[in-house]
Nucleic acid binder design. Structure first.
Lengths: 218, 218
DNA sequence: ACTCAACATATTGTTAACAATCCTGACTTA
DNA sequence: TAAGTCAGGATTGTTAACAATATGTTGAGT
């Protein structure tokens, strides 16, 4: 049983608790309380909170403390703009760098999605998890470690917090088709097309949020 | 004199010391030593080091300690790929969101660069600082706070560490002309062109590094 | 009734000491 | 001589106590 430091363990626990909604947005992250709950000192706990702050999962104010981040819808749009840029580049690099084996695995993943959607129309959770798997593999396929870290270790936690705002799951067939088109571009090693398709795919989700803002502000 | 916490102060000092080369790459970041040097306890110092780790300026190994990061040239290429994606998006958003006043200031900045380059051929330091100012203003002009944070607070510190590898300063006239073309696209509110020009501008620096790798490995 | 000031409380910021782990160097042995 | 082993020292990880600051409450005054 490989055990890291207490700080790393509690940081992972906190990430799970926040992304799962157990610690809801805006709730206080109190050092004494969590210290008692997890039975550790405040030192490692502070270290964990510091790491979460670096990921943008919590915001800290001096002498006031930490709260789970609360993203406005416009801030969510900002995140999707960053995601569009980074994942577009990931797709571009993946078209060059993904191995044939990685491409085969990606194809198998999409095949399983296709059969699942046919059998079980509109199961939301699976689609969200499946969508994540697809994007995750392409990011890894870029073979750019910094891209992987920025997206998987930072942005995706935030997006997962607000997955209720991600409306793309309403049309799983449409999303699947877009995924298949991206896969085709990757197999053709067409970097330009892969980037463009990925950006449109993500931009669609962004525009849905933007429209929602306009609708609610009108 | 607004004074933050000791941790923030020493973090800023460490950032300066690293980016200026005072703490060279790969050197140890010892807690007792720095604790004595700055006359503070190890607690705030650890907090500062944690923040630097989040920025990627230092790497930490459990029970071993922190060292100033050492980037291989291939890792530097990875960073430039991320920068290309993010600053391209920044230019796209800036074309939409920059105010007329911001555009005027940017134009004035480029004018001062032009006269400076004419009068004082090839002053390297100024060109690097000026190049940074130009990019910084466009990033801010995107009015996307997350983009600003990712680029200015994280990536740019790393790039500044390795500014010796940034060979674009060899041709300040060429860089200035590319800047002027980007400005023109921004003034025309041509988002597509602004993004494309910015990506090519940054991609040029990336390719120079890639070529250097090929040359040194051959 | 409302505002403002002082106080009490709790939380964060900081320090110093203790425990656990790793690196160094000398010593042993094949 | 070279490799392995085992202390010794130093550094990081962790804890607990102390100091500084912010929040919330109480009370006086208008």
């Amino acid at each position: 049983m490989k055990i890291g430091t207490q700080a790393q363990e509690v940081a992972d626990i906190l990430i799970r608790d926040i992304t799962s909604g157990d610690l809801p947005e805006g709730s206080r992250v109190s050092e004494p309380e969590l210290s008692r709950r997890y039975g550790i000192g405040r030192g490692p706990l502070r270290e964990a909170i510091l790491r979460l702050e670096g990921m943008g999962l919590v915001v800290r104010a001096p002498h006031v403390g930490a709260r789970v981040v609360t993203l406005s819808q416009s801030e969510l749009v900002e995140i999707f703009a960053v995601r569009e840029a980074l994942e577009g580049m990931a797709a571009r690099l993946a078209a060059k760098n993904m191995s044939d084996h990685e491409l085969q695995e990606l194809e198998a993943l999409l095949d399983s999605h296709a059969t699942y959607i046919k059998e079980n129309k509109g199961q939301v959770y699976f689609d969200q998890q499946g969508d994540y798997d697809f994007h995750y593999r392409i990011i890894k396929g870029s073979h750019n470690q910094r891209l992987v870290r920025s997206l998987c270790d930072e942005l995706y936690h935030l997006i997962q917090m607000y997955r209720k705002s991600s409306e793309s799951s309403k049309r799983p067939e449409q999303a699947l088709f877009e995924h298949q088109m991206i896969l085709k571009a990757l197999k053709d090693r067409d970097a330009d097309l892969a980037e463009m398709l990925m950006r449109r795919h993500i931009g669609k989700a962004r525009r849905e949020i933007e429209q929602f803002i306009e609708a609610s502000s009108a």
